[in-house]
Structure formats: C-alpha cells, structure tokens
Design a binder for these strands. Structure first.
Length: 278
DNA sequence: CGTTTTTGACCAGCGC
DNA sequence: GCGCTGGTCAAAAACG
C-alpha cells in the first residue's frame, strides 16, 4: 500500500507538465468538494451503522458483555460513529470487515495471526454460523476470536477478539493492540517522505483515518480534511479499505483531474528556482 | 502421518 | 428446576 504514498509518480509529473503549457487549471476547490462528498457519504454510512449497533445493543446479551455507555464519555465521536466497541474490562474488540468475494463462503478474517478453529455454532439472532478461533501461535496465548457474518450484510464479517496476545508476532508488528503501537502504525501508513495520503490511528489504535494531504501548502493545516473510514486493526483490513478507496478514486475522472491540478501547482512552485539554472 | 477442520455432545449461565 | 442459548470439548474426517 505504500506505493500509493508517493506523490512523484510519472503520471503526476506528466500532468504537472501538461498544466505548465495548458490553460489555467481548474481550481482546487473540486478536490475539496470531492473530499467533502466522501466525508458526507462516510457520515451517512456511519450513522446507518450506528443505528444498527444501537439496535444490536438493545438486545439482551449473555456471554458477550457490551461496553457500558458511560465509557464512551471521553472517546472521540468518531468511535461511536464507526461502531467501535472498546470494552474496558474484558479485552473485547469488535472488528467489522467486508469479505473478499473469493472468500464469500469462508468465515476467515486474516489479521496476521495464526488461528486454530475449535468450534462453530449457529446462533439465535444470526442465520450465519459463528466460528470460534484460538490463537495457534503459542499454546499459552489466551486470545480468542469469534467470526460471524453480519445478518444484515453477508459480505460483512464481524470478528470479536477477546484477550491479549502474550507473545510477539513475527511476520508483522502487533496490530490489534493498544496505543503503544499507534505511533508505529502512523509511520507505517506514511513510509514515504512525501506521502499523498494520510493514514493515522487514534490514541487507542482502533480507528484509522484516511485522508488526502493537500501538498500545495505543506505548512498549512487548513486542508487536512480527514475522512474517518472506520475501525482498522489489521493490515488486511487497511488494505481492503485503501484498495477500495484507490479503486473509487482511480475511476473518478474528476478526482484525477483535481489531483493532476494539485500536482501541477506543486511543480509550478518549484519552477522559478529551476529557472535560475537556465 | 501429522496437522487442521468439522461437528455433535456436553457444560455453564441466565431467565422464567 | 427446566429450558434455552452460547461456548467448549473431543473424536472423526479431511487435508497436505
């Protein structure tokens, strides 16, 4: 995904050169409009999800404790909006992710850990079976997860993690843990020196924010309009969302045009310095 | 043949 | 106490 973080792609440069010899470029407002529209769409989805979760919480629960409402007091609004359930006492985390079409009939949610399935059960309020997994990396690791398809959307996988890993994850860093990793995650999301996209994770490491950094004014924060995408705890989930975002934006000629304009502006900024050479 | 998955049985908690 | 439900166990089957 890091490959999407480079601004200086040949395409962008070409667009910038075209702009040099072309008519006045379209105003960058279109890019901001685009962001606003995505934000608005995200807000609509978030509120819909919130309604679903609110209905879900109103149902009686037994083994799966729900988070006390008061706990959300100091949490950012986006947490509730994207349906993050951050249980304080038993370490329960709920992750919702859209399943790949290829895995349409599988109940697997890849998250970088190795899991061993030890049971499956059809629950009362969901026609889809719930699969029970234990961490298979270390026998003593107490972490369990439950994966079940959403009753509303069978392409949506809902995974509930319980407990914390008491071992290192070799292949990748710990993605499902707390604030201690948020800094690394931030770095990982913007490994390039000049990232076009911003991927940040909040203090709890449970909400990812995807945004488009306006490179025209590096020092300016006014353009940092972020799009909160949802709860991300695994690289695969991040990749799914980023891929989806990239695919959406790639097919949007308006966005491409705006992006080209923004890159052109950057090139224009550097041209005067280059003129001294000639 | 070792490991993983499947699946029916069993157990515990909760509400009535 | 009984029934319902979610969670776990463990033997059998499947797989590489």
């Amino acid at each position: 995904m890091d490959s999407d973080g480079e601004c200086s792609s040949p395409t962008a440069s070409a667009a910038g050169l075209l702009h040099l010899f072309g008519p006045p470029l379209p105003q960058p407002e279109s890019l901001e409009e685009k962001l606003r529209r995505v934000s608005e769409e995200n807000r609509r989805l978030a509120s819909a999800l919130d309604a679903i979760l609110a209905a879900d919480r109103s149902k009686p629960r037994r083994a799966l404790a729900t988070s006390p409402p008061a706990q959300q007091g100091n949490a950012p609004l986006t947490h509730a909006a994207v349906g993050v359930t951050a249980e304080p006492r038993p370490r329960l985390r709920t992750v919702r992710a859209r399943a790949e079409p290829a895995d349409a009939d599988a109940n697997h949610l890849k998250d970088g850990y190795q899991w061993r399935k030890y049971g499956q059960k059809v629950t009362r309020d969901n026609p889809y079976p719930r699969a029970y997994f234990r961490c298979a990396y270390a026998p003593s690791c107490p972490v369990k997860k439950k994966v079940q398809r959403s009753a509303d959307d069978n392409l949506m996988l809902v995974a509930t993690y319980e407990g914390e890993h008491n071992h290192e994850q070799r292949a990748q860093s710990e993605y499902v843990n707390d604030a201690s990793t948020s800094q690394q995650q931030h770095q990982a999301g913007s490994s390039s020196s000049r990232p076009c996209s911003i991927i940040s994770i909040n203090s709890l490491g449970r909400t990812i924010t995807l945004g488009l950094a306006d490179q025209r004014q590096p020092g300016s924060s006014s353009n940092a309009e972020a799009v909160v995408v949802g709860e991300i705890v695994t690289p695969e989930l991040r990749k799914v969302l980023v891929d989806e975002l990239v695919s959406l934006l790639k097919n949007d000629s308006e966005f491409i045009e705006s992006l080209a304009s923004a890159v052109a502006d950057r090139v224009m900024e550097r041209i005067p310095a280059a003129r001294h050479i000639f």
